[in-house]
């Protein structure tokens, strides 16, 4: 297969704007991969070929870069990627138990996706929330200070409510506890899928929606 992904006009315009932000085209490769992920839901071969064409590289070069990083999923993932930290500070305060709770509520082990394609649990290394251990991200939006009980409720809520966008403040209020530091500022931006919500990549929900 050597097909090249057809992107929406909006994605093509975003890609052009992203490339313009760098002195050399190739530097836009990683941001463009996020656009590719948003377009197809995960990083497809044809998406990588589209990126390769945009930055004048061979598809093999793009794939060599993409495979180096953990956030470019090359298989379909569920609507919600639930990433549980099991590094030292979270482990000290029960991160492994939170992971077990997420896995059993989802009914699949870390690295897999549940049957209905809703929840994909995974374990990750430190996500910079060690003061609010144990910490979890859902589509890269952070929740700190979970318990196994709250983690179970989180997965049940994701399955039942299936929100189109995910807001960190809202999830923290529903399921979180101890935080690394005071968040204080009201968060209006939300994630739209299993990739980081960042405006230049077009992966963030419009302000005010949550």
């Amino acid at each position: 297969m050597t097909d090249i992904a057809q992107w929406s006009q909006e994605a093509e315009a975003l890609a052009e704007a992203v490339i313009a932000k760098y002195p050399q085209k190739r530097s836009a490769l990683m941001p463009l991969l996020y656009i590719a992920v948003r377009e197809d839901g995960y990083l497809t071969e044809s998406g990588m070929r589209r990126v390769a064409a945009l930055v004048d590289l061979e598809p093999a070069q793009v794939s060599s870069v993409a495979t180096f990083y953990s956030m470019y999923k090359r298989q379909p993932v569920g609507k919600y990627l639930v990433s549980v930290c099991t590094s030292i500070s979270c482990w000290l305060l029960g991160g492994d138990e939170v992971l077990e709770a997420v896995e059993s509520a989802a009914g699949v082990p870390a690295g897999a996706t549940d049957e209905s394609g809703v929840v994909s649990p995974e374990h990750v290394e430190c996500i910079g929330a060690c003061g609010g251990a144990p910490a979890v991200q859902v589509n890269y939006e952070l929740i700190e200070g979970l318990t196994p009980q709250k983690a179970t409720e989180l997965v049940e809520w994701l399955n039942a409510a299936q929100p189109e966008t995910l807001n960190g403040d809202e999830m923290q209020a529903l399921f979180g506890g101890q935080r690394s530091f005071d968040w204080a500022i009201h968060e209006t931006d939300s994630a739209t899928g299993p990739y980081p919500a960042f405006q230049p990549h077009g992966t963030v929900a419009p302000q005010g929606r949550s």
């Binding site: 932000k21 760098y22 050399q24 190739r26 530097s27 836009a28 490769l29 990683m30 941001p31 991969l33 996020y34 930055v55 060599s64 870069v65 993409a66 180096f68 990083y69 953990s70 956030m71 470019y72 290394e125 430190c126 980081p196 960042f198 230049p200 990549h201």
Partner: peptide
């Protein structure tokens, strides 16, 4: 320019960071 990484601790090492910012593997 604000640039977003792809999930790799080693990109914190300064020369890996530069490779990554050039659109390469973070080695």
């Amino acid at each position: 320019t604000v640039h977003l990484g792809g999930g790799a601790y080693i990109c914190g090492e300064e020369t890996a960071l530069l490779n990554s910012l050039e659109g390469r593997r973070g080695e």
